[in-house]
Design a binder for these strands. Structure first.
Lengths: 224, 224
DNA sequence: TGACAATTCAAACAGGTGTTTGAAACACTG
DNA sequence: CAGTGTTTCAAACACCTGTTTGAATTGTCA
């Protein structure tokens, strides 16, 4: 018995079917959702036979799990959350970087806009894959943001206050993506190109910073 | 003695089939989405025959449109956006009322939690019904909010600024509903009962008010 | 080369989908 | 009562779903 050796010298077309299946599936899953996506369409786009999914991944759900991991890995590699910030950056700079990188990750328009769409679908209709996703991908991001916000609030701010303010920040980022269909219908002139995203990040950062500074000084009584 | 208008010897549930179909469909559509919801399950829950949907509504999509209208009408009647505010209320009071009524509408847990779920699904996978929905239901709400925000900002604030600040407000409201699956996994202790919603409304209002007041006076990016 | 495993393929499977149909049951009017 | 339009029903329709199968093809190594 021989274990499969991955490096194929000449054409490398051997394991390519698997990869093409993942990429085609990412596209279809993002566009139609897990349930409505059909194995036949995925295989057709990948130029593979209908049985290819079951042969390479076992079943449709396993393929979906693979796609989710792959899409998140791509997005994180493309737009790392620290954005090459220097280590002694101010809190405001950290917040700006966090907001902007988040927007870029979500609004990536490239051939792989999978990440944002897949995540959004997980919000509406969570699959078993979400639990692992939260722990491995989302919680680190959440912890990073709360740390930034904690630094911007007054030292005595309760953890509850820190968490709520963090949510107020991230909510503004997610809104423009989650509600895009409505936003575009409400304000037909609105666009989401690179320039607009940069401008958006600036607004969100400024809005949040001023709120945080104010909340820092005028604090609710810590205990009733 | 029956208080029904129709003196029906047998049952009197004759025209009730249509209404029961709408309510059953609302539940199933909210739970499974338009595509994944099956006509058979809807009819079963409504205690009707499989052919009932096509007889009463023509096809599945028309039933969905009817459901959407019905759900929004219910939600608006249950939680009117002005919340019985007195006409000379301050801008801050108006903002608080808007935020709270919005949260209540979205988080309504009753036998009809359809509204929030159906709207969320429309965001992810817009159907033809969304266009009418935006114009008839969402734009009036949007206009009301921008008016409130315009009043809270400085007189010279640009319309762009007004719009962005309005979005910063409404985004905080929607976030807690749109991202509930992730929020519950991140902070397992979080609940969304009436008390928590009231508290949430207070935070969102305070966060936004302080930001708006600051943005009103200081137009340039803050130092720090 | 021959042998053996990995991969592809067309075909079929069992089950679910929205929708149609024609007859039966019903409610109401004359 | 008979007659008429409305509503319900079981059955069937045509199509799509994910998955399986067994043979055919391809790749790899002795």
């Amino acid at each position: 018995m021989s274990l499969k050796i991955l490096d194929n010298p000449a054409d490398g077309a051997q394991p390519a079917t698997r990869q093409e299946l993942v990429e085609a599936a990412a596209e279809v899953f993002a566009q139609r959702g897990f349930r409505s996506a059909s194995v036949r369409e995925i295989c057709e786009r990948a130029g593979a036979n209908v049985a290819a999914v079951n042969y390479h991944f076992g079943d449709k759900e396993s393929l979906y799990g693979e796609v989710l991991k792959y899409a998140l890995r791509c997005a994180r590699m493309k737009h790392p959350p620290d954005m090459g910030l220097r280590p002694n950056a101010t809190g405001a700079e950290q917040l700006k970087a966090f907001v902007l990188s988040f927007l870029l990750r979500i609004f990536d328009e490239g051939p792989q806009s999978w990440h944002g769409k897949l995540m959004l679908r997980e919000m509406v209709e969570p699959t078993r894959a979400l639990d692992a996703l939260v722990e491995e991908e989302i919680r680190p991001l959440s912890d990073r943001l709360t740390a930034i916000v904690r630094g911007l609030l007054a030292r005595g701010a309760s953890e509850d206050m820190v968490r709520r303010c963090s949510m107020s920040v991230v909510s503004q980022v997610l809104f423009y993506h989650h509600c895009q269909p409505v936003i575009l219908r409400l304000f037909s002139k609105m666009k989401f190109g690179p320039a607009e995203i940069e401008s958006l990040a600036e607004h969100i950062t400024r809005f949040s910073l001023t709120a945080l500074q104010q909340m820092a000084t005028e604090r609710k009584p810590s205990r009733r």
